[in-house]
Amino acid sequence: MTLLAIDDLVVEHRSPGRPIVRAVAGASLAVGPGEVVGLVGESGCGKSTLARAVCGLNPVTEGSITFDGQPVTPLGLRKRKLTGIQMVFQDPYASLNPRRRVGDQIADGLRTSGDTATAPADLLERVGLPRDFAGRHPHEFSGGQRQRIAIARALAARPRLLIGDEPISALDASAQSQVATLMRDLAVDSGAGLLFISHDLSVVRLIADRIAVMYLGKIVEVGNTAEVWANPRHPYTQALLRAIPKPDGLGVLPAELPGDVPDPAHPPRGCRFNPRCPLVMDICRDKEPDFGPVACWLHEPAT
C-alpha cells in the first residue's frame, strides 16, 4: 500500500529567454504510510523541485504524483483542500511569519485538522520546547528551535505525509541529528509517511528506512538503508559514501568526486553520470539506463 506514488515525474523550469531546465527528468519514487524515505543528492540535482512538486508548489510537466490514490493538484489561489501533505522548509528564518506569535502559527495547523483538544503548547512540548514559548515571536528563537516550531505546526495539521525539504541543512551540526530524529519519531508515531530530503547521507542513514539517491533529475539508486550503506551499487552512490569524512582518527581524507554537476539544461548524452563516472563504459555514453532500482549499466536487471 503506497501513500505517495511519484511516477516518471518530469518538472521543467521555464523562464523566458533561457533554455528550459529539466530539474526533475523522469523520477519515480514511492512512500508508504509510516515509512521514512531519505532522498539524497548534491545541490542542484532536483531534490527540492521534486519535493515542491509533491506539495503542488511546482507544476508537473509530465508524469504523475498521486497521494492516497488521488492526483496532487497544483497550489493555486483557491483554498487548499489537500492538507494531508505538509512540508518543513529549508530556511528556518523564512519558514515562520516574523509578525505572529508562534503559538498562533501552530494553532493554524490545529485549525486545519479540526483538533480542538490540543493546545499549541502541547505541540511545543512534543517537539521538545517549553510550553511558554507559545507567546513569543520567531525572532527570539535559534534556527534549530524555529525548525522545531515549523515541525510542530506541520504536525498540528495531522498530515499523512510529511516532507522535509533539507530541513536540517541550515542548522548547526549539533542540532542537525536531533531535529532529524525528532522529525522521524513524530512522523512515525503519528503513522505518517516521511520524505526526508538532505544532502547529508550520514544523517539520512540514521533516520531513513529506505534511501533514494538522486543525480541530475533522476533517481539513480533506491534501496533499503542498511543495504545501500553497506553495499552501494551505483558508482555515484559509492562516490557519495566515500565523500563522507570518517572520525576514526586515521586522518584519511574523504575521496573527492571529480567534476561538477552538469548543467541540467544540457544533460550529457547517455547515462547522466558518465562524464564523472570512474567505471564508465562505451554503452554509458550512448544509452541512458532507464531501469531500477539501480540505474547503471553495470546493474542491468536480467530480462
Binding site: 506539495c55 508548489l57 497550489l75 489561489l77 483557491r78 483554498k79 487548499r80 483542500k81 492538507t83 501533505i85 505538509q86 512540508m87 522548509f89 529549508q90 530556511d91 523564512a94 519558514s95 515562520l96 511569519n97 516574523p98 502559527q105 493554524d108 495547523g109 485549525r111 486545519t112 515549523a150 505546526r153 506541520a154 495539521a157
Partner: peptide, 15 residues
C-alpha cells in the same frame, strides 16, 4: 513566495 506564506497555503489558508 516566502516559505511561511507557502506553509500557510499548505495548511489550507484561503487567498
Amino acid at each position: 513566495e516566502r516559505e511561511f506564506v507557502l506553509s500557510g497555503r499548505l495548511l489550507g489558508f484561503s487567498a
